[in-house]
Amino acid sequence: MSSFKTQALLRRVAATAGPERSFWKAVGALAQEPRPNWGLDLHAGRQPLATDAFVYLVNTSNLWVASAAMSPAQLVAVKNEVEGGDSHKLRALAAVAMASASQAARAKEGSMASPESLQAFAAGLRAIAAAPGFIATAEQSPELDNHHWILLLYRLVDGEVLAGFGYGDDPIPGMLDRETLIEFVGNMVEMDLEPGALVGETAAAHGGATLADVLVTRPS
């Protein structure tokens, strides 16, 4: 393992609740890099040694997941396309599209390449690219390599939906495995639903959010 990867790995796991477990888990992943891409491959014309950006759409009520790998430059192009747009409106449109895609998948046992899922990706990418967190990260790290962009769908008790945004900078190439992704999602949900957080305040005003059991019963 190169010294660069070792340092990146240590930075990644140092702040976790179980740094030793996280360290050895990451070392194991490095031994078989790159990790497999289990989602859609949207990185057209990928060249040897090219880097990817990874996008995950997750329904927090039932853990429906759609994921994709793409060129970081593609995400930057979407950012330029939506520059100046209403990020709240784009996120609301993405939430509706994700809800439709997850419902269609349950009913039809559909794939990530279903028309509904592709529409959700189209709306989700625009919402991600317009998010202040994405814009700030793109300015600080223009390469955006091995970044993981996550859009969460929250189903509220009264039937409304909204989306939350988060990301991770992972030093290990490849898509997050599902277990690690759900850990990321659990941490994001905790932060989103904290008192005073925008998602939390909105959810509370609508009677709360319906969450998958694994997100409700996460160990402290």
Rank of each mutant, 00 (worst) to 15 (best):
residue 141 S to R: 12
residue 153 L to H: 04
residue 132 P to H: 09
residue 99 A to K: 11
residue 92 A to H: 10
residue 100 S to Y: 04
residue 123 A to H: 08
residue 87 S to E: 15
residue 116 E to I: 06
residue 165 F to D: 04
residue 105 A to G: 00
residue 117 S to K: 02
residue 128 I to P: 04
residue 141 S to M: 10
residue 150 I to H: 01
residue 155 R to P: 08
residue 137 T to P: 00
residue 105 A to Y: 08
residue 88 H to P: 00
residue 110 G to S: 14
residue 105 A to L: 08
residue 119 Q to S: 13
residue 114 S to K: 06
residue 119 Q to I: 04
residue 120 A to V: 07
residue 155 R to Y: 04
residue 114 S to Q: 04
residue 136 A to E: 14
residue 158 D to R: 06
residue 119 Q to W: 00
residue 125 L to N: 03
residue 97 A to F: 05
residue 136 A to I: 05
residue 141 S to D: 15
residue 93 L to A: 15
residue 122 A to S: 15
residue 111 S to C: 06
residue 140 Q to H: 13
residue 99 A to C: 10
residue 94 A to W: 03
residue 124 G to W: 05
residue 96 V to Y: 09
residue 85 G to W: 08
residue 144 L to M: 12
residue 145 D to Q: 12
residue 131 A to Y: 07
residue 116 E to K: 03
residue 130 A to Y: 06
residue 156 L to G: 07
residue 130 A to K: 03
residue 143 E to P: 00
residue 87 S to F: 13
residue 134 F to G: 06
residue 139 E to S: 12
residue 87 S to Y: 14
residue 149 W to T: 02
residue 96 V to T: 15
residue 111 S to T: 14
residue 141 S to C: 05
residue 110 G to N: 04
residue 138 A to P: 00
residue 131 A to E: 12
residue 163 A to H: 01
residue 107 A to E: 12
residue 150 I to E: 02
residue 117 S to Y: 05
residue 147 H to S: 07
residue 149 W to E: 01
residue 110 G to L: 07
residue 92 A to G: 13
residue 96 V to E: 15
residue 152 L to W: 04
residue 139 E to R: 14
residue 145 D to E: 13
residue 93 L to R: 14
residue 142 P to F: 00
residue 98 M to G: 10
residue 100 S to G: 14
residue 118 L to Y: 09
residue 117 S to H: 08
residue 85 G to H: 09
residue 94 A to F: 01
residue 152 L to C: 06
residue 122 A to W: 07
residue 147 H to G: 12
residue 158 D to T: 08
residue 136 A to G: 09
residue 154 Y to N: 05
residue 90 L to Q: 09
residue 164 G to Q: 00
residue 159 G to M: 08
residue 93 L to I: 06
residue 131 A to P: 03
residue 158 D to Q: 07
residue 135 I to Y: 04
residue 147 H to D: 10
residue 143 E to Q: 13
residue 86 D to K: 06
residue 117 S to R: 06
residue 157 V to H: 13
residue 149 W to D: 08
residue 138 A to E: 09
residue 118 L to P: 01
residue 143 E to Y: 05
residue 93 L to E: 15
residue 120 A to F: 04
residue 124 G to T: 04
residue 106 R to V: 13
residue 118 L to I: 11
residue 108 K to I: 05
residue 88 H to F: 09
residue 129 A to Q: 01
residue 132 P to C: 11
residue 105 A to M: 11
residue 161 V to W: 09
residue 159 G to P: 01
residue 139 E to M: 10
residue 96 V to K: 13
residue 128 I to N: 02
residue 140 Q to S: 14
residue 126 R to L: 06
residue 89 K to D: 14
residue 121 F to E: 06
residue 92 A to W: 03
residue 114 S to R: 04
residue 124 G to R: 02
residue 139 E to A: 15
residue 93 L to M: 12
residue 96 V to R: 15
residue 102 S to T: 15
residue 145 D to V: 00
residue 113 A to M: 11
residue 117 S to I: 05
residue 116 E to Q: 14
residue 117 S to A: 15
residue 140 Q to I: 06
residue 106 R to N: 12
residue 137 T to Y: 10
residue 163 A to Q: 03
residue 129 A to F: 01
residue 95 A to K: 00
residue 85 G to K: 10
residue 125 L to H: 02
residue 159 G to F: 00
residue 102 S to I: 11
residue 143 E to M: 11
